[in-house]
Design a protein around this nucleic acid. Structure first.
Lengths: 212, 212
DNA sequence: TAGATTGTTAATCGATTAACAATC
DNA sequence: TAGATTGTTAATCGATTAACAATC
């Protein structure tokens, strides 16, 4: 039975379901039961059935789930077929690493532009993506529908940039800076953080504490 | 009262506590109560007191917490003062972005070496860090105590590299590849994932679903 | 002392797991 | 049909919040 409000615990598991289903699909697996998927993912079958049932009944008694169908359903739930667009703010090492290596298209995003202040970069293309000067950011955002801005700018300008793009109606900010952008200060945009330091410190705790 | 087994929910909040305490410390704040820290972090005071009490009693009734002291305690809990060392596997864009921009030292890690196969890079230094050929990885790890290896290699070789370093006694693997490295297959090393795609897809779900 | 705030115990809430009727 | 497996309801477990005595 479809649920109204999905808990964030469930949402955070969806991309992993997608990844596993995509692997299975590429391997040619046709069907899978909740229990075998659970086994390969290190979850319980109950949890998988509960999670999926938040969005509808995608399985069949006695059979399990059709991999291709379920993969598509999860992709749809995640919004992978909505022609989302993305612009990168800050074409330093990290910004370029994402431009050159991250498969935006495979995740349903079209990378359309990058912005920087470096005159060496502005006007060029990096991996096919045009780099514009940050001064033209607002004009660009007015003229192009951008769903998500990637924040790979220096920490000092992170908050200002976030406010600028949020004010222009961008729906999401993918924040790679170490700066906290409180959701309450960005009333119009969702903020998703990738805090490298938090991740490394978690690992630091684990290795300091005990062996796995 | 010190607890034995700390839940991962608590552990994942510790780096954020550290970040906020460090900010307060740098601003010269001397003391803080659980309720004002809670307010600025968007948590409840109860939760903060519960979390901290897993590790000991760091506060004082009627006063609150001494910022400098609590910052040090959290740093200690996180293992930031253990002279951890780190080596980067894969000096592509992402590896270089980490080498040049990520403050390993501020997080208690000493960046000692990078490994790659590119003859253009091997033998050089990047941001002061020597780059060695991957062929010498095992020899290096035998002679140097490396706590954590950063996995910024192409997906195709990720699992093989992970096994190699785990076999050499590395305690942690900081995994930036999109490949899943099941903890059960790495019995000796903790794996901490930074899955860019999972993060972006979570954001994709949020912006597809509703405004914040 | 009076006021403030902790650490901890108890109550509540939510998420995970187990069980099972429905059914392919 | 018999066996398998779902979707869902109920039971359990764990995490968060509330309350309050202790005490600085």
């Amino acid at each position: 039975m479809k649920k109204d409000k999905i808990s964030s615990a469930v949402i955070r598991r969806l991309p992993r379901y997608y990844r596993h289903l995509d692997d299975l699909y590429r391997c040619g697996t046709v069907r899978i039961s909740s229990s075998s998927l659970a086994k390969s993912m290190g979850l319980t079958a109950s949890q998988i059935r509960q999670d999926l049932s938040c969005f509808g009944g995608f399985g069949q008694q006695g059979y399990g789930y059709n991999v291709e169908r379920l993969r598509c359903e999860v992709a749809d739930i995640l919004g992978m077929n909505r022609n989302h667009t993305v612009a990168i703010l800050g074409a330093g090492n990290l910004g370029r690493a994402l431009m050159e290596n991250f498969p935006f298209a495979d995740n349903g995003f079209c990378l359309e532009a990058a912005f920087d202040v470096d005159p060496e970069l502005v006007g060029k293309r990096l991996s096919g993506t045009p780099v514009y000067h940050v001064d033209g950011l607002e004009d660009y955002l007015r003229e192009h529908q951008v769903s998500v801005c990637v924040l790979t700018v220096p920490a000092g300008v992170a908050e200002a940039m976030a406010r600028r793009v949020a004010a222009c109606g961008v729906s999401g900010i993918w924040n790679f800076t170490n700066v906290e952008l409180p959701q309450k200060d960005m009333p119009n945009a969702w903020v998703e953080d990738v805090h490298f330091a938090d991740s490394l410190l978690t690992l630091s705790y684990m290795i300091s504490e005990e062996a796995p």
